[in-house]
Amino acid sequence: MAKQSKIDHLLFLIIVALLAWVIPGGGHFAIKERKRGIIIFVTITLTFLTGLYVGSVAVVDAVGSWPWYVAQMAASPAVGMIANITRSGEYVSYGRPFDIGQIYTTIAGMLNILCIVSAVYMAYCGRGEMIGDEENDV
């Protein structure tokens, strides 16, 4: 019985991690940390979109700059769809806009890694059950 509970808990942690990756802030939302979830979603999405706006979708380059792409992918699996669009080489970006766009999108991905770890840790500690109601009272 205890073993089953451990497996359930592990499965829950994996689901929280996946949710946090698929939608930034989704992991925190799942463990009733709604304010955190909204703040994370808005901030990471805006940071990523700012990068795309400044440098264009060409900053997501899975072939030419794959180390950056790995970090960008941490923002969301949806980045893979953008990489498919840019793979044709139809969109180009150079110079300072490319640098700024790449830095923004990569930092957004790395910040999401921090949020994934935070959501999983909070779920592991039972934070959602502990302070989820408390957050609503404030």
Binding site: E33, K35, R36, I39, I40, T43, I44, L46, T47, I107, A108, L111, L114, C115, S118, I131, E134, E135, V138
Partner: peptide, 14 residues
């Protein structure tokens, strides 16, 4: 962005 995300993950009660 970095300051907001860092504080959002670090503060115990938000």
């Amino acid at each position: 962005s970095i300051a907001i995300i860092y504080k959002a993950t670090k503060m115990r009660v938000l």
